[in-house]
Amino acid sequence: MMKDNVENKVGVDAMNVKFSARDVQVYYGDNHAIKDVNVDILDKTVTAFIGPSGCGKSTFLRSLNRMNDTIPICRVEGDILLDGEDINAPQVDPVQLRAKVGMVFQKPNPFPKSIYDNIAYGPRIHGLARNKAELDEIVEKSLRRGAIWDEVKDRLDAPGTGLSGGQQQRLCIARAVATEPEVLLMDEPCSALDPIATAQVEELIDELKASYSVVIVTHSMQQAARVSQKTAFFHLGNLVEYDDTTTIFTNPRDTRTESYITGRIG
């Protein structure tokens, strides 16, 4: 088993590590979905998780902000440390964790509320604004960061569900950054979008890495190559290889990685 998983210490600056996972196992009922994953995810970096469907990349991503808690049959073992603190420790409230580790989903899922209320939802529940003016400020700042401010600034009261797919996804990204997270998890954020909207979102991801640690799950190798600095390749629940994106795509060490990026498995 251990042979399947590489030790990833390549050029990692300990001070720069945001997430560090050690011997993580995830089970869905009897199904061992994630096996012995060890990985260090860096701050202010875009990390891509790639691999064939069902390889566990989304499952692992969801265990980084304990979204797996919402699935009753799911069980996570091993240590996942955020800034050195175990996120699965009993005294940790997942609610607080998720405020620090935001998430963007595969399908844009704006709430059936106005654009303004979609963004303001997170700050409101976490009590980030003391008054309306502050909230307005947060909403504007978030929409700007989501690169959608110019498109919606005149219709903040319109329902978020009325936007186009690409706009909806950028709205969801803006919604996620509104709570001032430190990490942004993105689960195939472009899979439901057309190429133009995809380009917009990818551009946005590139800007976001200045402030956040971004983890993106994608099944598109081109996308991983375009947006990420680090890439992790998952296969059948194992983390096969984790390295600089350029290394993974030009000079993979593992034959499985090579087979995948050359299109022989997938």
């Binding site: 603190e85 940790v92 409230d93 609610v95 529940i125 976490h126």
Partner: peptide, 22 residues
């Protein structure tokens, strides 16, 4: 801007979260 939720340690459950959990 109050940033109470995000700066503290994960191990300390802040007052607001306690209230929300109640």
């Amino acid at each position: 801007m109050t940033d109470a939720t995000n700066t503290g340690s994960l191990y300390d459950v802040d007052a607001r979260t306690k209230k929300r959990n109640a």
